[in-house]
């Protein structure tokens, strides 16, 4: 991934971090890396909207596809150095909810609503035939205070009932 971002245009609202949008079609075929494509990078609110408004809404897609929003410089794979010791909260969604949840999640990430310092790596939306899922990835899987805070913020920004079930998966176990 490109490490340097262009300076923001005058009048634009800078984000705390630079991010990239990615997607991976047919994630189960060949290697994940080969199917992974970067859409583009941005570091201001205005550039985010300009990308986002041109992206197809997840609920309009059929077939298997993963969307990612990750900090620039981190590839959205378990193998990346920033993800290797990390993990992710996974929330399964019944069909029809993905677009709204995904939008609320990425707005919370870009707006720094998680308040966990540098811990957030990114987020992923997986569209599948029966159900969709979203996940929030962080750097340090064994940092309990951080993972709990991410879980609670996720429930708040998505307006989920407190009883909602979510799984935390360690990337090192997925790699094994």
């Amino acid at each position: 991934a490109k490490k340097e971002s262009l300076p923001p245009d005058p009048g634009e609202h800078r984000l705390q971090f630079s991010y990239a949008f990615w997607y991976c079609r047919q994630p189960r075929l060949r290697s994940y890396d080969q199917n992974l494509k970067m859409i583009g990078t941005f570091n201001t609110v205005e550039k985010f909207w300009s990308f986002y408004s041109h992206l197809v809404r997840p609920s309009e897609l059929s077939g298997q596809i993963d969307f990612h929003l990750f900090k620039e410089g981190i590839r959205p794979m378990w193998e990346d150095e920033a993800n290797r010791n990390g993990g992710r909260w996974v929330l399964r969604l019944r069909k029809g909810l993905a677009s709204r949840c995904w939008e609320n999640l990425i707005l919370a990430i870009l707006g720094e609503q998680f308040m966990v310092g540098e811990e957030i790596c990114g987020a992923m939306l997986s569209v599948r035939s029966q159900e969709d899922s979203i996940s929030v990835w962080n750097k340090t899987a064994n940092d309990n205070a951080t993972t709990i805070r991410i879980r609670d913020t996720l429930k708040r920004v998505l307006n989920l009932p407190p009883s909602t079930h979510m799984d935390y998966k360690m990337n090192s176990e997925s790699l094994r």
């Binding site: 609202h13 984000l15 609110v45 205005e46 609320n104 707005l107 707006g111 720094e112």
Partner: peptide, 21 residues
């Protein structure tokens, strides 16, 4: 340093700014 924090409502407001079309 200071963290750049944006509420959802503010981000939504900027959606319709001329730059973000």
């Amino acid at each position: 340093g200071t963290r750049i924090i944006y509420e959802r409502a503010f981000l939504m407001q900027l959606r319709n700014s001329p730059v973000a079309k």
